[in-house]
Design a protein around this nucleic acid. Sequence first.
DNA 1: CATGGGGCCTGTACGC
DNA 2: TGCGTACAGGCCCCAT
Length: 289
Amino acid sequence: MPELPEVETVMRGMQIALQDRTIVQTIIRRHDLRWQIPADFSTQVTGARILGFYRRGKYILIRLSCGQSIILHLGMSGRVVLDSPEPPQRHEHVVFVTDDGKRCGYIDPRRFGMLDLVPTSEENSYRAFADMGPEPLGNGFSAQTLIDASKGRRTPIKPFLLDQHVVAGLGNIYVCEALFRAAIAPTIPACALTPRKANALVRAIRSVLQDAIAAGGSSLKDYVRPEGGLGYFQHAWQVYGKKNQPCPKCPGAPACPGVQHMTQAGRTTFFCPQHQKTGKIGVSGAERA
DNA sequence: CATGGGGCCTGTACGC
DNA sequence: TGCGTACAGGCCCCAT
């Protein structure tokens, strides 16, 4: 599901259950996810203690006492279940058994996710992280970093923000929602960002991510948090998936056609052409960053 | 270099 | 009811 808020939610659930536990058994039922799980994965991690959890963009890092870090990406349909049942569920490709007898499973029907291993000391040079953009909720993300990254980029702002080299962790849902909150048209060229617009955008990105994390992420289809509960941020979506519904910012405005959708770089964009006018600057009332 | 499109998989929703 | 088609949260790779 997983954009940054969902990945953060999954990581926090895993941390509560697994921090400081020792992995006593690793069952790999399928090696062929997005890439092959390393052949020695099970040998490397079994017997190690789980020292800590970190998140970088949409990736979860699990640092182990053996000097290795597990890299976990949920792809499009990845889920983590704690207290995974026996026998394992359909599409449950990996199961970790810990020293308290609990089972933690990785489920991924589409197998777009991945599980890899890197020496902890070499995390930063791991390919996905080496040239990844800043964390949007961290100090390294600002209007200035957005403007710098957008120099010479004539691609529309929407696909630009989906580029993990620009900023880490955003996906289709939260980019649509952030552009709506900032009242920026998804079609404007990235390099047309003014400081004022960039500032509104940074605030909108932070606020939508923070709100979503507070809500436990967005639950789509059968997505659940590791502990089994549902995230509920999907109820706060203002444009994503709202085709032809009234725009929440243009109540009763005759000129407003409601929420529209289009395809940009192969992905569906939801937006309100009235609220998100080219050149219009603003911050929605829902934003409180 | 920047950009757009295809491919990877399976499940589900929808139209006929 | 049954079948075919389109589409879905991401990311890599290649052609242009």
